[in-house]
Design a protein around this nucleic acid. Structure first.
Length: 285
DNA sequence: ATGCAGTCCTGTAAGC
DNA sequence: TGCTTACAGGACTGCA
C-alpha cells in the first residue's frame, strides 16, 4: 500500500530510466480504473518526451514536453515500472506506454484503486490538485498551523493523521508508526494533545517517513519500486502488523484496535491514553 | 460544518 | 476438501 515513502521510491527509481525518453504509443486494458485513462488521450501523448518526474503527496507527476503531464496515483496496489518491452506481461496490467529505446512504462494495479491521467497545461494540473485539497507534507508543515489544526478537532488523532487534507503523505502504516514513536495513543482526541505532544508527533511523522525512504519503502504485499524491486522497511516497523508481538522498546504486547474503520496498532506501555504520560513529548530513535 | 460509515476492488487467509 | 466470510485501506460519497 503505497504511502509517501513508497511513492518517492518509485519516483527516484524511474527518474534515470524515464527522463529523455519519447512516448511512442499507449495501449490500455478494458477494465476500468478508479482514475480512468481516456482513449482520446492515446494520440495526444504520441511524440511527447519525458522532461522530469516528481511527486506531490502520493501523486506522481511525469512532466512531458509541450507543458503536458501524466498524473499517477497508485491507490492500494498500483505499480508503475519502466522495463524492457520484451519483459513478461503480468496479470492486472492496465496501461503500457511504449517508449523510445525499447522500453515500456507499465501501470499494473490488482485492485484498480489508482490510475493514470493526462493533463495539458499547468492550470489543469493545479485545478486537479485543488479538487483533492492536499495539506502540506510533514516536513513542510508549519508547527503553529499543525497545533491549531489539532486543537480544532475532536476526532481521534489517528483519523486526522491519515486525512490528506490536514497533512499529506501518511497512510495507515506510517500513522501507526509515527504515533508509536511519539508515544501517543491513536484513539486520543486530537485536541487533547499538549503542544509538546503535537510537536513531537509532527517531528516523528517526518522521521518515520525519512527512514522509510532510506529503506526504499515498505513491501508487505504488492508494492514494488519503479524498477520492480521491493522495499526493506517492513523489517523496521515498530508496531504496524505486529499485533501480539512484544514492543521492542518496553516489551509489552502490541494491540490492534479499529479506529475510523482502519486497523490501528499500538503499544499499551509506550502509548498511554492519558495526556502527557509515557513519553508523549519525546521523539525516540 | 463535522465526522462517521459505506463503497469500490481482488487476493489471501481463516473458519466451518 | 471446498465453500463462505473477513480483512487489507486510499480516496471518495452520502448521511446523520
Amino acid at each position: 500500500m503505497p504511502e509517501l515513502p513508497e511513492v518517492e521510491t518509485v519516483v527516484r527509481d524511474l527518474r534515470p530510466l524515464l527522463v529523455g525518453r519519447v512516448l511512442l504509443d499507449v495501449s490500455n486494458g478494458a477494465k476500468r480504473l478508479r482514475y480512468p485513462w481516456k482513449p482520446t488521450w492515446n494520440r495526444r501523448i504520441r511524440g511527447l518526451s519525458v522532461e522530469a518526474i516528481g511527486r506531490r503527496a502520493k501523486f506522481i507527476i511525469v512532466g512531458l514536453t509541450q507543458d503536458a503531464s501524466l498524473l499517477i496515483h497508485l491507490g492500494m496496489t498500483g505499480q508503475l515500472t519502466c522495463v524492457p518491452d520484451d519483459e513478461i506481461v503480468a496479470d492486472h496490467l492496465h496501461l503500457r506506454f511504449r517508449l523510445s529505446g525499447g522500453f515500456e512504462l507499465r501501470y499494473r494495479d490488482i485492485r484498480r484503486f489508482g490510475g493514470v491521467e493526462f493533463h495539458t497545461g499547468q492550470a489543469s494540473l493545479e485545478k486537479r490538485f485543488e479538487s483533492v485539497a492536499l495539506g502540506p507534507e510533514p516536513w513542510l508543515m508549519d508547527g503553529d498551523n499543525w497545533v491549531a489544526s489539532l486543537m480544532a478537532s475532536s476526532r481521534a488523532i489517528k483519523s486526522l493523521l491519515i486525512d490528506q487534507s490536514t497533512i499529506s503523505g501518511l497512510g495507515n502504516i506510517y500513522a501507526d508508526e509515527a504515533l508509536h514513536r511519539a508515544g501517543i495513543h491513536p484513539a486520543r482526541q486530537a485536541k487533547s494533545l499538549t503542544r509538546p505532544e503535537s510537536t513531537a508527533l509532527l517531528q516523528a511523522a517526518g522521521c518515520v517517513m525519512e527512514e522509510a525512504i532510506a529503506g526504499r519503502g515498505t513491501t508487505l504485499r504488492d508494492y514494488v519500486g519503479g524498477s520492480g524491486l521491493g522495499g526493506t522497511h517492513q523489517h523496521s516497523l515498530a508496531v504496524y502488523g505486529r499485533e501480539g508481538e512484544p514492543c521492542s522498546r518496553c516489551g509489552l504486547i502490541i494491540i490492534r484496535i479499529m479506529i475510523a474503520g482502519r486497523s490501528s496498532h499500538f503499544c499499551p506501555g509506550c502509548q498511554s491514553q492519558d495526556i502527557g504520560k509515557r513519553g508523549g513529548n519525546r521523539v525516540l530513535p
